[in-house]
Structure formats: C-alpha cells, structure tokens
C-alpha cells in the first residue's frame, strides 16, 4: 500500500504545479483581452482620467507581474480577493476592500449548486451507463445493442440546448411533472432541490451516458477473446456471470477513467444547460465574469475547474490501481 500512497502524493504535487501553471496562463490570457475592468464598467464614453482613477483604486495600474504574485500569495492563504463587479461602485473612491464582496463569498454558493447538480447527474448517469454498457456487451450485435447505441449516440450528437428543450417539452409542458426553471435556493429542502434540478440533471445524463456506456461495452468486449473468459465459459458459467464476474473487474480501469472525465465535464462545462434552466451554477458566473473582466473571479473559477479535473483524474488513477491485483498485491 506504500506505493499507492507515494503515487497519490506524487500526483498531488504535480497537480499543485499544474494549478500554478494554469493560473499563470489564465492571468496572461485575461490580461491579453482588449479593454479592462474599468472600461467595461464605465462604458466607452468614460474619460481617460476616470478610467485611470478607477484602475488606481483597484490596483489595476500596477505591473501585471506584481498583481499576479500578490494575488498568488493571497490565494495560497485562502484569500481569493474581492470580486470587482460586486463592489459598491457608487462610492468607488472609497476603499473597495471594505465594501466589496469577497470572491469566496460569490463563488461558494454557486460552486455548491454546481456540485449538487453534478452529483445528482452522476448518481443517475453512472449506474445507467454501466448497466447499459454491460447489457450491450452481453447482447452484442442484437437489436437491443443497436438501439442503445443509436439512442445514446444521437443524444450526444444533438446540441445540448436542443436536448434540454425536448425534455422541457415532454416533462414540463406537455406533462407538467417537473419544473422547467431550476432556480434552486438555499432555503429549499433536499427533496425540493432534487425535484427542481431534475430536468437539467436528466439532460446532462443524456449527454454524458453515451461515452461511459460505449466505453463499458468496448472495454468488456475487448476482453471477451481472453483465454480466461474462454475458461469461464468452459466451466459452464452463464453468459451474464462471465461478463459481470470475469470480464467487468478486468475492464474497470478504462471505464473509471471515462467516468472521471465525464464528471469533470459536469463540473466545468455545463454553462449552456445552466442558462437554459436558469440554474445558479458556477458556469454562468464564470461567463459573466469574463464579460466584465472580473479577473479575481475568473481566476478562482479557472482554478476550481483545473482542480476538479486534477482531483477526479487522480481519483480515477487510484481506483484503477485498486482494481488491479497486480498493483495492489505486488509479488
């Protein structure tokens, strides 16, 4: 088990390094955008003096390198700074830090919502995808296999908003079972939240199932020519048992990796779905912040996205190792 711990620590260290590089790239990219926060807020007609005064107040006039490092040091200590766009600009001559809303305060509820939606989707999508994949492998080349493939492929090939509207049409408009607006709030009970978020979760399920299901099917079928699968058949085991007991445990690594990638997508890539269902997640906040050049929020979002990818991939690696007896029990 010592080796697994070492691998985890190694990956974590690499992950931190990746995060730092990501933050640099993001910072450089945002700085390269034309216009600044001040021009975005004050409008095209703002006098150069007003822009300069605002930039000075916010510290935007300092060199980029200085700004980057002061932000980095604060971020390392857990302080992601103050959201520029949420500051009280009626009196922007005053100290922004006193009246502003911190990035952490802005992000935290949004991030919780995003995690909630991603978690709910995963709870539905992962079991459905793996089960469909196993069944498709079991009844490969049958009508069921083809139908599942066609259905999942067409749902992943259609634009996300289209899938969303189709579901709204059938599950909210024609049959008023679920609310089409998913503006969840903190004062809802868990049940209400689940019900309110069900439509976006179902839409996302349709989008992420295809990858996971097809990988499950392919990984299992890939193993069916193995001598140990033939051995299981020659021991008189049922086709279902051959697949679930003999093929699936050896096919876990690629499946887990695709699941991790899809979960990361659920955290970082669902802005269209959030817009369609008015879901208060982190994606919308991110897009708004880019629009207003709210650099601290953009950077914090990017770091969260990068961290989600790194952690989920790390988790996938660890699960792959645990699923492989050769690595779990060295000779």
């Amino acid at each position: 088990m010592g080796s697994i711990l070492r691998i985890i620590l190694q990956r974590l260290a690499l992950g931190v390094l990746t995060l730092i590089i990501v933050s640099l790239v993001i910072f450089a990219a945002v700085n390269a955008l034309p216009g600044s926060f001040a021009t975005a807020i004050l409008g095209q007609a703002a006098t150069p003096e007003a822009v300069a005064a605002m930039e000075q107040t916010l510290g935007l006039d300092k060199p980029a390198v200085t700004r980057y490092f002061s932000w980095l040091f604060a971020a390392v200590q857990g302080d992601f700074g103050t959201s520029l766009s949420q500051a009280n600009f009626a009196s922007f001559a005053g100290s922004v830090a006193d009246t502003g809303v911190t990035v952490a305060d802005t992000l935290a509820p949004r991030f919780r919502n995003t995690l909630f939606l991603a978690g709910l989707t995963a709870l539905i999508a992962v079991p459905v995808a793996v089960t469909l994949g196993v069944l498709a492998a079991l009844y490969r080349n049958s009508a069921f296999d083809r139908a599942t493939n066609i259905f999942t492929l067409s749902s992943i090939s259609s634009p996300e908003f289209f899938m969303a509207y189709v579901l709204i049409l059938f599950l909210a408009v024609l049959n008023p079972w679920l609310p089409s607006l998913s503006n969840i709030s903190d004062d809802m009970t868990l049940g209400e939240r689940v019900r309110t978020s069900m439509l976006p979760a179902l839409t996302l399920t349709l989008i992420v199932t295809a990858h996971m299901m097809r990988m499950t099917r392919a990984a299992i079928i890939n193993l069916l020519a193995s001598p140990y699968i033939e051995m299981a058949r020659l021991k008189g085991m049922s086709p279902f048992r051959v697949i679930v007991k003999h093929a699936l445990p050896n096919a876990l690594a690629p499946i887990v990796n695709v699941i991790a990638l899809n979960l990361a997508y659920l955290i970082t890539g669902v802005v269209v779905i959030e817009v369609v269902f008015v879901y208060p997640g982190i994606g919308q906040l991110f897009v708004d912040s880019v629009k207003t050049r709210d650099i601290p929020v953009v950077q914090a979002c990017c770091l969260i996205f990068a961290a989600a990818y790194i952690l989920l991939n790390l988790l996938a690696d660890v699960l792959s190792i645990i699923s492989n007896p050769r690595l779990r029990h060295p000779k």
Partner: peptide, 25 residues
Amino acid sequence: VKRGLLGKRIAYVAQSAAASFNPAH
C-alpha cells in the same frame, strides 16, 4: 444443457495457465 455439463462433468485445462486464470480473482 451444455453449461450443466461443462465444468461439472467435462473440464478443460488450457495451455497457458497464466492467461487462463482470471487475474482479478
């Protein structure tokens, strides 16, 4: 019917035991 016989009344020993044992169990 064949599954009922295979493994129970007729058994098989393969050429490469290393490949024919399931690595996961």
